[in-house]
Amino acid sequence: MIEPKQHLHPDVLTPEAKLEPIRAGFGRGLLEAGHRDKNVVALCADLTDSTKIGDFARSYPERYVEVGIAEQNLVTVAAGMALTGKIPFTSSYAAFSPGRNWEQIRTTICLNVTNVKIVGSHAGLMTGADGATHQMLEDITLMRVLPNMTVVVPADSVEAEKATLALAALNGPAYLRLARDKSPVITTDKSPFDLGRAQILRSGTDLTIVACGVLVYHALMAAEVLAAEHNLEVEVINAAVIKPLDTVTILASASKTGAVLTCEEGQIAGGLGSAVAEALAEHAPTPLQRVGVQDRFGESGTPGELLEAFGLTAPHLVKQALELIKRKS
């Protein structure tokens, strides 16, 4: 059953589900973070409005820095500002930042422990028609392996707003992954968000689904189908914080249900599924199936077409879940 204390949006599982791009929540969160702390500054690489940093830029022009199409400069200028007491948020498309500037992030932000927040918008297949070059699928992996880095993949715009505020208050490097296209709003202002906790959105005993980003919605939809058509109670965990991963919650759920399905809109190697696999393998080996992009690049299409073609929608998750449950001992 849906956990009442999660205060999920009442329409989320209905055809009337409210749709909003996840990046819109970041724009609101950044504006509020700027209001709360005058040290919050924003930097952009010629993608101000599409990365939703425009409202901040117009409200706080004196704290907004445009670096042009120069992503290496974007994060290193930010590192310098952080070394001088600022809390910089850098925004670009994830394919370019952190796609192009990984070493600068590694050295000047992570090893240097500077308080920079890297915001990668237009991540994943939800970028749609722009095609493979712009559909960043490797960002979670690239950021997760860096010491000192916090990695957050919000499930919807409301959670993105909360994550932005939480990261502004966190002293240290962080990566925030955002999607371009509209997706269902799952959570509400009352829903809990904690950088140290994964959230159990739905409790169950037959199977655990650990999801992040836009696939949290598809995981919830799959759980509905599994309950209605297969009499299975699925526990759905929103692992928005991929690093540090809340292994306590995930391991407890795995030990209860005996099988774990992970799903993410990113490369299968090194992402959320890998992080969960590492935790399970070391602490509680459990039948596991990872759903994600299977070692290939994206292509042009609508986000809906792409999620379907890459096997990431609810019907695919249902199929994978049923196969996985057969492997339970």
Binding site: V41, N73, T76, V77, A78, G80, M81, T84, K86, T108
Partner: peptide, 17 residues
């Protein structure tokens, strides 16, 4: 290659203050 941009970031931040 990343020192000038960090120095520029420091310079702009100091000027803001």
């Amino acid at each position: 290659g990343s020192g000038v941009s960090q120095a520029a970031g420091m310079a702009i931040a100091l000027r803001m203050d």
